[in-house]
């Protein structure tokens, strides 16, 4: 099946400037619903679901291919190529930020700029690097997810949305819509990934958006990403949590508008 159908690709808006919105772990393109109506007024939007998430064709989930973020990055490249729509400005949330970095390092010709929303190249502390989690904490997080996925989703949702109950409920629902075996596998791939070596290879205009009190990707991590990507812009948002496009959509859109089109 063609990638457009397989990854439930949808186009909104019009215009020469293309924003490709890429959701994070456990989510789907629905997560952009509060910002896309504004953004589509001025930009052509490409929305899609990562394989195994949302309304993608999960039958195509191949544990070999999706055993690393590179498999997801290859899908991003395939979507842009198949649509014939590049170069795009890629907006990647959370794990998708690093998926975008990986894709842009592999095929810079398809990307105009990157907007990394609450990114983390590595969640685990390692030597001098502070990822925000000890290995025990990550292992505990994954184990709790593997043993009681629904319970884990309920517990983590308010943390991600800065204690916004309405958006928390929505994100928990989204988590529960993923096939549990895929959710568990994707979680392990996400939380054990280490993309730090990719960051210095990126040579595109990049904007990094950092939330306050983000326990998944704390400010120290955002600052690390900023220092590793030459010429990147680092913007600290007023919003709490890990999902500013859900909890502070107005601020999110304003910041994007203020920085687009991104220049080096």
């Amino acid at each position: 099946m063609n990638i457009i159908k397989r990854n439930n690709v949808n186009l909104l808006g019009s215009g020469d400037e293309v924003l490709m919105l890429s959701h994070g772990y456990g989510c789907s393109q629905e997560m952009w619903r509060l910002v896309s109506p504004e953004l589509e007024k001025t930009h052509r939007l490409v929305l899609f679901d990562h394989m195994g998430s949302g309304a993608s064709e999960a039958a195509y989930y191949d544990k070999g291919k999706y055993g690393s973020l590179a498999g997801y990055a290859d899908d991003v490249i395939e979507v842009i190529e198949d649509l014939g729509i590049g170069p795009v400005t890629f907006v990647g949330h959370s794990v998708s930020a690093m998926i975008g970095v990986s894709a842009a390092v592999k095929r810079p010709d398809l990307f105009k700029a990157l907007i990394l929303v609450t990114p983390s190249p590595c969640y685990v502390n390692s030597g001098d690097y502070v990822g925000g989690f000890t290995s025990e904490a990550i292992e505990g997080l994954i184990r709790s997810l593997e043993s009681n996925y629904a319970g884990w989703a309920e517990a983590i949702a308010p943390v991600l949305t800065g204690n916004d109950p309405q958006q928390g409920k929505m994100i928990a629902t989204s988590f529960c819509q993923i096939r549990p075996d895929i959710a568990k596998h994707f979680a392990r791939v996400t939380f054990t990934s280490d993309s730090r070596s990719e960051l210095p290879k990126l040579d595109l205009p990049t904007l990094i958006l950092q939330c306050k009190d983000d326990v998944i990707a704390p400010e120290v991590v955002g600052d690390y990403v900023h220092r590793q990507i030459k010429g990147s812009h680092f913007v600290k948002l007023a919003s709490n949590g890990h999902c500013p496009h859900l909890t502070a959509p107005t601020e999110f859109v304003e910041v994007l508008r203020a920085h687009l089109p991104l220049r080096a």
Binding site: G67, S68, C122, E139, T192, S193
Partner: peptide, 15 residues
């Protein structure tokens, strides 16, 4: 990518 992921996880003392 997958092999690197495996090594990174084990290197970080993760399953």
């Amino acid at each position: 990518g997958m092999v690197d992921g495996l090594r990174a996880a084990l290197g970080a003392n993760l399953e």
